[in-house]
């Protein structure tokens, strides 16, 4: 099992064990597709998930692809960094069709553009007009107070139910 890591290191990619059955690989943005297809060929056929971490200080989004191989009984976590200003990356649809759904979610909540993904329509949120909510620069508290706050002066004379002991 150890040999897989050496092969990856030989392709001068940073890789390290996270446990006895899981390892992570860091790839630059442009070598992401080759790494993923290489891993898929090696046996990591099952696409488990795509998520994104907002490193606002570095000004980067970190995309995390999680793959599993049932016959090797191994899991790999592929990470890559893309700039926050114009986050664009090609879609992994051709490799795994279901990846498009995750990309649609990433697009809605982080505003990442996935070229080649057929439908990046709004997914969970109802007629959302603000900036993508899960970005660090989005202030949920201010949003919630602005939209949902029940200010005392607006009770329109209707008193809410009194406290009953």
């Amino acid at each position: 099992m150890a040999d897989i890591l050496d092969e990856i290191k030989s392709m001068d990619l940073k890789a390290s064990w996270l446990g006895d059955w899981e390892f992570e690989v860091f790839t630059p943005k442009d070598r992401l597709v080759s790494t993923l297809s290489y891993l898929k060929a090696k046996g990591f056929k099952a696409f488990m998930g795509l998520s994104c971490v907002d490193w606002i200080e570095e000004g980067n989004f970190e995309l995390v692809y999680i793959l599993q191989s049932y016959d090797l009984a191994l899991e790999t976590i592929v990470k890559t960094k893309i700039p926050r200003q114009r986050p664009v990356i090609e879609s992994m649809g051709p490799l795994w069709k279901l990846c498009e759904v995750y990309e649609r979610e990433m697009h809605e909540f982080f505003g990442i553009e996935f070229t080649g993904n057929p439908n990046l329509k709004p997914f969970f949120l109802e007629n959302w007009l603000d900036i993508p909510p899960l970005r660090k620069d989005f202030d949920t508290l201010a949003f919630s107070e602005e939209l949902f706050e029940f200010k005392e002066d607006e009770t329109h004379g209707i008193e809410s139910p009194k406290r009953i002991e």
Binding site: L129, D137, F138, D139, A142, E146
Partner: peptide, 14 residues
Amino acid sequence: SPVLKEIEKVTKIG
């Protein structure tokens, strides 16, 4: 219309 009015003021963190 968007709920958070002054976007740039809010996103100044960090």
